[in-house]
Simulated assay, not measured.
Amino acid sequence: MMSQLKNKGYAIYDYMETLKYEGIEEDYEALLEYFEYLPVDDYAPELNRYRRYSRALVLPASKNIEWLPNVVRDGREYAAYFQGKFNPEHPGSYREFHAIDPHILENTLLKKIIMADYEETFWGEEDMIMPIHVGVHFVKLEVDEEGERAVSSPDCLHQDGEPFTFAHLIERRNAEGGINAIGIPSVSGSQPEEVDEDKLHEVFELNRPLESYGVEDSSVSHYVGPITKGGGEGPAVRSVILIDYQLTVVADMDE
């Protein structure tokens, strides 16, 4: 049976249910606690966004995950990220994010999520002789004050440039907004409310832990809205793990 991701260009998942294994709750709690202490996103300190990032390879033959080394700056470890032309807020930029700590990289739930996403992706037979590159972002939006917003990047319908991207909710607490939208590619750069309804495939919210979605980048654009404080006590929080997959690029020696 053809997967929804392949058929429609996007799919919605409930990984708490489909990945259920003995110990999943403890592994989830370890990830949840780790998000409490994410450092501020150095590239947008005013947007109430916190982030860590690490890079890995998935070896198609063995299905092993190999974490790539980090760069060290002033005694701190960073992972390099190149967005290319697809993020209008950072076009063509090379950025370095605080790396995810080694004990979290070995978290069983995180590794199961990475491989479950990987199994949803699809590639040409010739592509499978090389490792698949995986980028793992831990991103938290947090708002402490009434009237403030926490904003994802980029703040519009967009495509990422990587062939596949998946988002997994870790926590949503006392938050308004944060809607997700999936649209056709040509509405990239627009806000969902600016787009005709027939150009949006689906608008939805992720509310429960490990509610997730994935997109095939060439087929759709996607969006997550800013969050503001809800009516409860404490800050508004929306924490997600974003995972992208792309091919190993082999240089053309004739150029």
Rank of each mutant, 00 (worst) to 15 (best):
M1L: 11
K6D: 07
K6Q: 14
K6C: 03
K6G: 11
Y13G: 04
Y15N: 08
M16G: 10
T18S: 15
L19F: 10
E26R: 13
E26M: 08
Y28A: 07
Y28C: 11
E33P: 01
Y34K: 01
L38S: 07
L38I: 10
L38V: 09
P39V: 01
D41Q: 08
D41R: 05
D41N: 15
D41T: 06
P45A: 02
R51S: 05
R52W: 04
S54E: 01
S54K: 03
V58G: 03
P60T: 03
A61R: 11
N64W: 07
I65F: 09
E66R: 09
V71P: 01
V72Q: 10
R73I: 14
R76T: 10
F82V: 12
F82E: 12
Q83A: 14
G84D: 07
K85N: 14
F86W: 13
F86R: 06
P88I: 15
E89H: 13
H90W: 14
R95M: 14
F97S: 02
I100V: 15
I100F: 01
D101R: 15
D101K: 15
H103E: 15
E106W: 04
D117F: 12
Y118K: 11
Y118T: 08
E119C: 08
T121E: 02
F122A: 06
D127Q: 12
I132K: 00
G135C: 05
G135K: 05
H137P: 03
H137S: 04
F138L: 08
V139S: 08
V139T: 12
V139E: 06
L141N: 03
L141P: 00
V143R: 00
D144M: 07
D144W: 06
D144C: 06
E145V: 02
E145D: 06
G147H: 05
G147D: 05
G147I: 06
A150H: 04
V151C: 04
D155R: 06
D155Y: 05
H158E: 08
P163N: 00
P163V: 02
F166Q: 13
A167C: 15
L169F: 14
R172G: 02
R173H: 15
N174P: 13
G177P: 10
G177C: 06
G178H: 00
G178D: 03
G178L: 05
N180S: 15
A181T: 15
I182K: 01
I184E: 00
V187H: 00
V187P: 00
V187E: 00
S190F: 10
Q191D: 10
E194K: 08
D196I: 03
E197T: 12
E197S: 12
D198V: 02
H201W: 13
F204H: 02
F204A: 07
E205M: 14
L206Y: 06
N207W: 09
E211K: 07
E216C: 13
D217P: 03
S219D: 11
I227H: 01
G234C: 10
G234D: 07
P235W: 00
I241T: 09
L242R: 08
L242W: 06
L242S: 09
D244W: 07
L247G: 08
V250M: 07
D254Y: 05
